Simulated scan of single mutants.
Amino acid sequence: MDYKQLKDDIKNHAAALGIDKIGFTSADPFLSLKDILLAHREKGYESGFEEPDIDRRVYPELSFEEPRSIVSIAIAYPSKLQNPPRSEKGAYRGIIARSAWGEDYHVVLRDRLAKLESFIRERVPDARMLSMVDTGVLSDRAVAERSGIGWSGKNCAVITPEWGSWIYLGEMITNIPFPPDTPVTQSCGECTACIDACPTGALVGPGQLNAQKCVSFLTQTKGMIEDDEMKRKIGNRLYGCDTCQIVCPINKGKSWDHHPELQPDPEKVKPLLIPLLTLTNREFKEKFGRSAAAWRGKKPIQRNAILALGNFRDESAVPVLSQLLKEDPRPEIRGTVAWALGRIGGEEAAQAVARALDTEPDEAVRTELRKAVNMREEVLNK
């Protein structure tokens, strides 16, 4: 079998498979990654969403018997909304990160990888292949970088010369000995725009992310966000954060609309905030079920919507927030409402907080209620 010719055939056919860029690398261990991952863990920078076994992230042979190659794919996604709805007083909106626009990228990438597997199997019937998307054990970025897809940016994203960093990544381990591609030699150079713009200082150095401070990570947690500064830094983000990609000069002017299933519905990716607060599980599934933003359920998005209303200081939201404070069974939601009411201020919000202090059984929520009282007192004393 001429594996170089097969590789060329795959590259020539990639666009027909819906793949924007494809690269090949050996299945050798990612030894340089191991020290980085160990240091990351030692410093407490992990998100907790990663594969916990570092060796499995480094050694492909722990997931696939006798691997010979890894194939990396990239699919470009849009970064700009056509005719985006605007936030207005009394009708404020949140924003969902571009990585969750359109159909869930896990579904899209699995479809592309399945098509790639079929293309290969027609030519190599006994080929063995194992495809992974995001939740696989390997580091998508490390595979993509070694496969020549792009370079690892200071914002921890893989940046391609053609598509910028607005790309989804997936990979496939196989027993086919494809000749490897050459890594991209381009780099970020002296640019530190992403590090300078990070809202919380989570980019602690070039290519180093403290996930515990990352707004994208915070928006996906399920509990109450205790740090008041972090609550403010989230702004009106409902899921994810694009700041470090938006400011990247390589991404300037880049937006892709050639994958119809990835095109966003403006009303879903920049939704009105107040209606989100009372969504039932069924309504949430209907609105967000096909989006990658749905994977953690409705509670994080509702909590983030409450934070956004507080950050907007939206007085029109006080009645519905007061109702949630009184009736919602979830302490994370009640505690977040308490903070938002304190931030919004005004007599109606203060009365809702005072009433809740008389009946609230959860101590963490009571702490937030007392903070809200203090916020009001600080305003009155100015």
Rank of each mutant, 00 (worst) to 15 (best):
D20M: 03
P180E: 14
G23P: 00
P84S: 13
I70S: 11
T135S: 15
I36E: 14
Q263A: 12
L262H: 00
S63K: 10
T221P: 04
K252L: 09
P271N: 02
L81F: 03
R366M: 08
V124G: 04
S216T: 04
G148K: 03
W295M: 06
E117A: 12
M172P: 02
V373N: 02
R56L: 11
E360M: 02
L321I: 05
G170D: 07
V247E: 14
R93S: 02
Y105M: 10
G235H: 06
S131D: 07
A74Y: 11
A350R: 02
K285S: 15
V353F: 01
P161V: 08
F284W: 09
L277R: 01
G48I: 06
E61W: 15
G240D: 06
H13C: 04
L138G: 10
A338G: 02
K371L: 08
R141T: 07
E226N: 08
S79F: 10
E368K: 02
S47Q: 03
D314W: 07
F30I: 01
L130F: 15
Q245V: 11
E283W: 14
F284A: 08
L309V: 01
E65G: 05
G164L: 07
N374S: 13
E51Y: 12
Q351I: 12
I344A: 12
I301M: 15
R112H: 15
G207I: 05
D227Q: 10
Q323P: 01
A76H: 04
D227N: 13
A352F: 00
V337L: 05
I10P: 07
T135C: 07
K34R: 12
A372T: 05
P177I: 04
R86W: 11
F24R: 03
D134M: 10
D8M: 12
E103S: 08
L357N: 03
E377R: 09
T336W: 07
A144I: 02
L62W: 08
G18P: 00
R86Q: 15
K80Y: 13
E162A: 11
G150I: 04
A211T: 00
D257P: 01
G201I: 09
G48Y: 13
E66A: 10
G94D: 11
F119M: 10
Q323D: 06
S69E: 00
I95Y: 15
P271F: 00
W339D: 07
P29K: 02
L62T: 08
A14V: 09
S32H: 05
V107W: 05
E267R: 01
G346S: 12
D20K: 02
E50N: 05
G148D: 03
W163Q: 06
G342K: 01
L37A: 07
N281Q: 13
P52E: 14
G205H: 09
K298H: 03
G170E: 06
F178I: 08
E377I: 04
C241E: 00
A308H: 07
N236Y: 10
L273S: 13
T135K: 12
P329E: 11
D9K: 06
R290N: 13
E117I: 06
E286D: 13
D265N: 13
R68N: 09
A14C: 13
S26M: 07
C191Y: 09
I95L: 13
D328P: 02
N304D: 10
I19G: 07
L277A: 04
L37W: 10
S187L: 04
I225Y: 14
